[in-house]
């Protein structure tokens, strides 16, 4: 009930309750913490993955992105997204 009211208030005032901001930030921070990967390792992994993908399709290596997100209590998901430049290379 309180939640609904806060949501309505947020819509009316255009202000998001600060605890919702905190929750979103925590989900990302904890997901990263739980992988035990630091920034340098993550960067290294990103570059390696980009190199593997680039072997098969044309991509912009800089645009390869890794997202780590907690999807539920028990599981954290690692998602790689990479915009493909040229569709004709896909069979």
């Amino acid at each position: 009930m309180q939640q609904v009211w806060n949501d309505i208030k947020g819509l009316l005032t255009g202000r998001r309750a600060s605890k919702e901001v905190a929750k979103g930030r925590l989900h990302l921070v904890l997901a990263h913490d739980r992988t035990g990967l630091d920034g340098a390792k993550l960067q290294e992994m990103r570059e390696e993955i980009a190199a593997v993908i680039a072997k098969y399709v044309t991509i912009d290596a800089e645009a390869v992105d890794i997202q780590i997100e907690r999807v539920s209590r028990e599981s954290t998901e690692l998602r790689v997204s990479s915009p493909v430049r040229n569709h004709s290379t896909l069979s």
Binding site: N6, G10, A17, S18, K19, E20, A22, K23, H27, R73
Partner: peptide, 15 residues
Amino acid sequence: VKKGDMLSKDDVIDI
């Protein structure tokens, strides 16, 4: 918590 400016106990448990 009521104002939405503090995580509730349930939020913390969930996280």
